[in-house]
Nucleic acid binder design. Sequence first.
DNA 1: CAGTGAGCGAGCTTCCGCTTGACTT
Length: 780
Amino acid sequence: MQKNLVIVESPAKAKTIEKFLGKDFKVMSSYGHIRDLKQKAFSVDIHHNYAPQYVVPDDKKKVVDSLKAEAGKAQVVWLASDEDREGEAISWHLAEVLKLDTAKTKRIVFHEITREAILRAISTPRSIDLHLVDAQQARRVLDRIVGFELSPILWRKVKPALSAGRVQSVAVRLVVEREREINNFMTEASFRVIADFILPDGTTYLKAELNKRLKTSEEATAFLESCRDASFRIDEIVTRPVKKSPAPPFTTSTLQQEAARKLGYSVSQTMMIAQRLYESGLITYMRTDSVNLSDLALGTTKEAILNTYSEAYYKFRKYTTKSKGAQEAHEAIRPTYIGNEGITGTAQERKLYELIRKRTMACQMADAELERTTISVDISGLKEKFVATGEVIVFDGFLQVYNESSDDESEKEQENGLLPAVSVNDLLALDKAVATERFTQRPPRYTEASLVRRLEELGIGRPSTYAPTIQTIQNREYVLKGDKEGVERSYRILTLQNRKITKKEKKEMAGSDRSKLMPTDTGVVVNDFLMKYFPSVLDYNFTASVEKEFDVIAEGEMEWTDVIDRFYKVFHPIVEQTAAVKTEHKVGERELGADPKNGLPVFVKIGRFGPVAQMGAANPDDKNAPKPQFASLLKGQSIETITLEEAVRLFDLPRTVGEYEGLTVVAAIGRFGPFVRHDGKFISIPKDINPLTITIEEAIELIGEKRKKEAERILKTFDNEPDMELLNGRFGPYISYKGKNYKIPRTVKDPKELTFEEVMSIVNSAEEKPSTPKKVARKK
DNA sequence: CAGTGAGCGAGCTTCCGCTTGACTT
């Protein structure tokens, strides 16, 4: 008979803890929440004090059954879920669902997975904090109300299957507003002047920048002219020590940011790799908002630093979390054994591990000490000065191991290193002075990781939801991760050299972006709609202010249902009113004017399949009236910016491009983008060709390419079995047999060498395995 | 994978936060 059953949230944690506790304890995992509101029903009884209707989801039934069985056998059940709102609720649901006897149920919490911490927890059990559970219920019910009342309005007013929510809608808002800031941004030009001086020794150069930007080219010319006959003298040399401190250890959000900047991983990639490291026991838990390190970790990190470096490189540091709404149920993300310098695993796993290890080491290391020297150069007759700055590392400290990267591209211009030795009053000769036109930078578009950082700053979302939220807003096509081509712009360079001023003009590309988040038309329309009717929910402080109310509930000073009731009484009437508003035009619709050819009105709006242009209005009273025509907008066009001329041209599709081999070639746009059709075959038109202007020559080339690919598609056929083919697909070679596809084992080097018997055995062995249960098709 | 879409009517879509699987298309 089992004496004790301990239930934690994560199976990897369960395994570790079981080792510490000995044979009287069995440790099991709940795999997160075991009970929730129904997935497909509102499940909150508005008329009976917001009673939530909880169910055990199908994929949790097995877990619950086995927990129930073990709990029945145990003398004491220890509920050891995390010490935060959600963890407390998990314990409560467990107690309810497993029908645990209060007398033999104990609630324990620990923040680090060490024998001492767990034994200490076991010796100081408590009971479930029902106030904290209520705060979680309020959170859950509020999110359900907001999500399940707002989404259906969008289905009716904008497009089916859209969604809105406390977290995702704010994420979209951030991206939409940033794009508008960028559109409205006015660049300002100014001239930056850099001079090259020659020191009295006649050979050493000193580069220095004017301490002021000049507004116009006239002003810059005038300045250079006054430099022509000026004398230059070292005016002042200031040297001062500067200290740099290491960044705190990783949380989920900072890990996502650094992995994106240093390793180029997407937010979800980072989390998948970290999950594998965690499951292999290499790092601590990867979903955390805490920067805390356990005493054990602090000790072993100190040891590792002293072993590798010296006493001088070590500095004890204790970090405290200051991010909004942090719940700190776990430690910071760190290696479980910092002595482990490297690990075995995939290249990605090794790199992420190294990043985590270095960051952990660095955070317990000494400050870097720098010496920053500023030399100021006096210009005779003028009050402006040239200034040279140099920075020298006196002691590298933590920089030996790790330096945090920055998103800010303008910071790339580094400071000069060591400056030449000079003395005050040294006279300098001017070799040349160059005034270059520079422009103010527009605000940057968000990356996945920088959007996560912004959400975290606002206290919106949790470590476990950052990656899924970023995914959701892309799945709904509110936001796209994409590239933006820059525009060419010219800038002027004025050079003073040998007493002559010359002018040049150069070109550069400005404003290009790679893999940045940009709003789609749907995102913009949905955001504007929600901002108009539900500004309070989209308010950046909405989450923060409801969090305050949840805290009051957790303190036991308010009933959770009262908090929800106060919200619902205001929120729901707006939902009703908004749903009832009958508008002549669809949400986000824009009328561009009349087609000059036929006088019909042209609109753009979000259609069932995305942004669409419509020519002519529907006439419900007259069945015989001509029906309106529709045409999808092209990639890169948007409802906000498309012109009447551009929209009218869209109706030229489908369009006959010409003839080839006696058959017509037609260009059009389909479900999967622009294509040409010839001889019953469809060929996608690549991004750089416009279907409105594609020529017959270009189309023929595409047809040729497609035929070539087609020919390469078939690797091998078998005379005795025409249904069997070896094909080249998107994911490499595969077997096609009687309409089904089979993958070729990795061990096969050259699929072309496979005999019919070998292929048949691959097919048969694949068939033997129970055909994978077709799960409900997941949304892409 | 592929020329979609203004209407007589069915039923579907959706939230946020905990946690890992079994898919290899």
